[in-house]
């Protein structure tokens, strides 16, 4: 059997394409991401030693004072929303609320009282954004308003946010809170898109940029909190757990956060007795919300390479079978006159 003459194939071009495929693969490999990959020690982590917290609220007051200029000043009247089922969310008349998270209160103290091993306990827990290592709010924000910075701080840009509240929906702790009547949506389609701006702790990014500590840490009279590089703070948290027989929260939650809590009482017990609900985040175990996406990401990065290989193999199999490369008009590989007469 003689092979049918095949279309001359430009070897140098094939080599070029092979090289291109290999280069693309190299670029798509995780190693190539190193350039933009934050070094672990670029991340700043806060450690809360809950055995020291007396619930005085000095951190809450300091947070409100330090961030007052960032608080929303809504324009009234609010634009009528379409459809009418969309409700305004207005906290501007309740600025003094301090027992939950609001656009005017980015930190509150959650108090848990109960019994553990036959003894009464009262634990006070400063609560605010956990600053996840792989934050769903920043990853799923469709508008680019939420982002994670190299130092691990997760911020929402109030000049861009449209207040769709998706970040709150996908946040495992539903931390961000909306204020209607402020932000970019007023200049776009105020009746049809957006509903304000989402607000949450930015870990005093402006102060940290100046080399200062976040206001809540600086103001604490009992030294409940400290901040530092991740490896150092995680080691301190582990040492604290070892020395006190305590428990840690935030290290593994949602794949890892940059807010660690160490408590003498197990967190599932605290979660059961602490007041939780809207604006009052829970203390439950949280699985890594982005775990499935992380697996799919690698499939997506290798898919075009697999496609190139499949395309090349298709040509190779045709040549190997003694057929010419695909003739025009026969994309499914059948002869041009297949099915005729």
């Amino acid at each position: 059997m003689t092979k049918a003459p095949s279309r001359p194939v430009d070897i140098s071009r094939r080599r070029f394409l092979t090289g291109l495929g290999v280069t693309s693969l190299g670029l798509l490999l995780p190693g190539a991401a190193q350039a933009s990959k934050a070094k672990e020690d670029d991340e700043l982590v806060t450690l809360h030693d809950l055995s020291k917290c007396v619930g005085c609220g000095a951190c809450v007051a300091a947070c409100r004072k330090a961030n007052a200029r960032k608080f929303p000043e809504p324009v009234r009247p609010f634009p009528a929303m379409y459809p009418a089922t969309v409700k305004a969310e207005d906290w501007s008349g309740r600025r003094q609320v301090s027992d939950r998270l609001t656009p005017y209160n980015w930190l509150f103290v959650q108090s848990a009282r109960g019994q553990y091993q036959g003894q009464d306990f009262e634990v006070h827990i400063p609560r605010r954004c956990m600053h996840c290592q792989n934050p769903p709010c920043a990853n799923l924000c469709p508008w680019g308003a939420a982002a994670r910075e190299n130092n691990g701080t997760v911020r929402i840009d109030p000049t861009i946010c449209l207040g769709g509240a998706k970040c709150k929906t996908v946040c495992p702790w539903q931390i961000p809170v909306r204020q209607t009547g402020v932000g970019l949506y007023l200049k776009l389609l105020p009746h049809l898109t957006g509903n304000g701006v989402m607000f949450k702790c930015d870990r005093c990014a402006d102060r940290v940029a100046l080399g200062l500590e976040p206001a809540c840490i600086e103001a604490c009279p009992h030294g409940v909190q400290e901040i530092g590089p991740r490896s150092e703070i995680v080691a301190k948290a582990h040492a604290l757990v070892r020395n006190t027989g305590g428990f840690v929260y935030g290290e593994a939650e949602n794949g890892g956060t940059n807010s660690l809590y160490v408590s003498p009482i197990p967190f599932d017990i605290l979660d059961a007795v602490a007041p939780t609900g809207p604006g009052k985040p829970h203390l439950s175990t949280v699985r890594d919300a982005m775990a499935d996406e992380n697996k799919l990401a690698y499939a997506a990065l290798f898919a075009p390479v697999a496609g190139v290989i499949a395309g090349a193999l298709r040509l190779g199999s045709r040549i190997g079978a003694g057929r010419t490369p695909e003739p025009p008009g026969n994309g499914d590989g059948r002869p041009k006159d297949a099915g005729k007469g």
Partner: peptide, 26 residues
Amino acid sequence: AVRVLKNLPMVSFSPLPTLLIDWVHL
């Protein structure tokens, strides 16, 4: 692909490139 890369753990883009990628993609 860049957005997928950005969503991987420990990969950070600063806010402006994130915003530009989102808007250009859309």
